[in-house]
Nucleic acid binder design. Structure first.
Lengths: 193, 193
DNA sequence: CGGCATTAATGACCATGGTCAATATAAAAT
DNA sequence: ATTTTATATTGACCATGGTCATTAATGCCG
């Protein structure tokens, strides 16, 4: 049996999401409070949790949506033909992901598909990102001793690493791309065995 | 001026830590509640926060201590001469780090030196780990087109990636080492340019 | 219509981490 | 020993996410 979702439901949900986005636009992701969302949306608190498993589930949705926009941009770009250019192409996405400590935390938490069962929006975007990277890797052959899937996963790992070090007191002097660039060169164009 | 810490302070602190460890031993990391710690230690709640910035700071301490033990083990081992053996050597540490979703979350949060200013225990262990890896990399030359520091950071990135995928609904079928092994082979012994 | 079943919304309530002005204790100065 | 200062402890209180039994809409059917 289909769910038979009422129109009202969709409206309420839309109002909640809109309210959350407003708050984020005004004061950033970290500032989002369920109470405030619910107040602006004109619903009771319980309603929020009838629509979203928890606060993070809504964050996952909103952040994931945003990531998807960056991936759209990436996809409209020509495949970069050097590791350095690749790092540059990925920079805007990295910058968004690290725009707030809180945002990066949510992404880390959900990228590993935190919510055990369901695959959330962010986790989905990660799959998509790996696909885009694989496309790039097939366009220009960087190295061919390993599968492009493995290469793509590696790029992902290095992105996370470069971003994480941004928040590290010991290492935050270096810009993301001054770190990601060398990583990708070493990963995609090793000089020898 | 030195702080002139009282003996009492150290005792209280020790009681708090001991209580927390007891709870963890009995019911796991996730189960640790400040209220319960304080109850067992026989102090007021406020005392807890006079000793630790927040709950996570204590977790950082306890988990970091544990990681240090694993690093001691690693250090007492002979340097592994192949990427595969390296992955095997790192397995116990990886298993501890992923023993609970919550533990991995704390590690991720604090590895990037979450608490902006102070360098916590976990962040410190990460520095130490990189040192150990660098030692290994210098003993047997894997590849020499890049610095061993960069290589060590890469190994770290791949460890995180392999562990994160453990919690991913899409990828949790693969064992950590079936993933880490290939990563390290590709990273440390690339076959060509 | 007017009942009837299904789905949505409500808000009082709970769990838990965290704060802070007030108080008690220890160490130093007289 | 008494006063003074520094440090540690306290617990009532707050902030915020999350729950759930109850109530209200909605839509269907005769």
């Amino acid at each position: 049996m289909a769910k038979a979702i009422q129109k009202r439901t969709l409206e309420t949900r839309a109002r909640l999401i809109a309210a959350a986005k407003d708050i984020i636009r005004e004061n950033g992701y970290e500032a989002m409070r369920v109470e405030e969302v619910v107040l602006r949306a004109g619903t009771a608190k319980g309603t929020f949790f009838a629509h979203f498993r928890d606060k993070d589930a809504l964050m996952d949705l909103i952040i994931g949506e945003r990531i998807d926009e960056y991936l759209d941009d990436l996809q409209s770009l020509p495949a970069p033909d050097t590791p350095k250019k690749m790092a540059e192409a990925l920079l805007p996405l990295c910058e968004f992901m690290t725009s707030e400590r809180y945002v990066f935390d949510v992404i880390l938490r959900y990228s590993g598909a935190a919510a055990q069962e369901e695959i959330g929006t962010i986790a989905t975007t990660f799959g998509r990102q790996v696909e885009i990277l694989e496309g790039w890797l097939k366009t220009y052959s960087y190295r061919n001793d390993v599968s492009s899937e493995l290469l793509a996963e590696g790029i992902h790992a290095f992105m996370i690493q470069a971003m994480a070090l941004r928040f590290c007191a010991l290492h935050n002097a270096t810009a993301i791309n001054d770190r990601l660039g060398p990583y990708l060169v070493a990963w995609l164009q090793p000089k020898s065995g």
